[in-house]
Simulated scan of single mutants.
Amino acid sequence: MARNVWHRLREEHAVTVTRRLPVRFDLSVSAELAVQGPVSLTRVAHQVRQDMWRALQGLRGFSPAVRVEAGEGALRITAGGRMEGAQASAAAAHQLGVLLDSPAHHARWLRHAALTPSAEERAS
């Protein structure tokens, strides 16, 4: 499998980014992020995926997945993924929870995903 292949499953108000189909969340942590303006759900999902991979890259058999859902003034992020041949540890879940609760990461994800007025028109 090519290293750059990511499946993007788009729904009306949500996007899921995963390496493998079907999507499975054997390890899963969720968080909500307040948002002030329009953002790209796909960009948020990829930023979370990158940071999650950096934090959990030593976890054997792990295949990451991230789901981002848009709500009224907030995003609900579910991060985790599939575990092949291993069990997700409490330490891995804790590490992922720390990442999803990090205000510094929230700010970076939202800064990267902010849509400008011209980008909004293209996204429509």
Rank of each mutant, 00 (worst) to 15 (best):
T116S: 13
P103W: 02
S102E: 05
D51Q: 15
L96A: 07
R8M: 00
S124F: 08
R49W: 08
G71C: 04
L33W: 14
L110D: 03
Q57S: 15
L21G: 07
M52V: 13
R24M: 13
S63T: 06
L115R: 14
V48R: 10
R24E: 14
D26S: 14
Q87N: 11
A104W: 00
S124N: 02
L56P: 15
S40D: 09
G85H: 02
A88S: 05
R19M: 05
R19E: 04
P38G: 13
A93S: 12
R8P: 07
S124M: 11
V15S: 01
S118W: 10
E69K: 10
A104D: 01
R111D: 13
L75S: 03
A65G: 02
L100S: 06
A91T: 15
A14T: 01
A74V: 07
A2L: 08
M1K: 09
R82T: 10
V98I: 10
L100Y: 09
V98F: 06
E121C: 02
G81A: 07
A14F: 10
S30I: 12
H94Y: 13
L100T: 05
E72Y: 06
G81F: 06
E32I: 15
A88L: 07
R60M: 09
G37S: 06
E69I: 02
A31P: 11
H94R: 15
E120V: 09
T18F: 06
L59V: 12
T116A: 06
P117H: 01
A104R: 08
A2H: 09
L59P: 08
R111C: 13
P64H: 09
D26K: 05
A45C: 09
S30A: 14
T42K: 10
L110C: 11
L41H: 06
E69S: 01
D51S: 15
M1A: 07
A14I: 05
A114N: 07
P103G: 03
G85V: 09
A70H: 01
L110H: 11
H46S: 13
R108D: 13
H46R: 13
E11L: 11
R60Q: 05
Q95Y: 08
L100P: 04
H13F: 08
H112A: 14
S89K: 09
A114E: 07
Q95F: 12
A45W: 00
A45D: 04
D26Q: 14
R19K: 09
G61H: 03
A34W: 12
V66I: 10
S40G: 08
G80R: 00
R49Y: 11
V29W: 04
A55N: 11
T42P: 05
H106M: 07
R20H: 12
F25H: 13
A88C: 04
A114Q: 03
W6Y: 02
G80L: 03
V48C: 10
E12Y: 07
T116V: 01
M1D: 06
S30H: 12
D26A: 09
V39Q: 03
P22C: 14
R67F: 06
M83V: 00
P103K: 03
L100V: 01
H7W: 01
F62L: 02
H13V: 12
L27H: 10
G73Y: 03
A93E: 12
V29H: 08
R24Y: 15
R20I: 05
A123C: 04
A14Q: 11
H105V: 02
L110W: 01
R122P: 00
R24T: 15
L115D: 09
H13L: 13
R43D: 07
R76D: 03
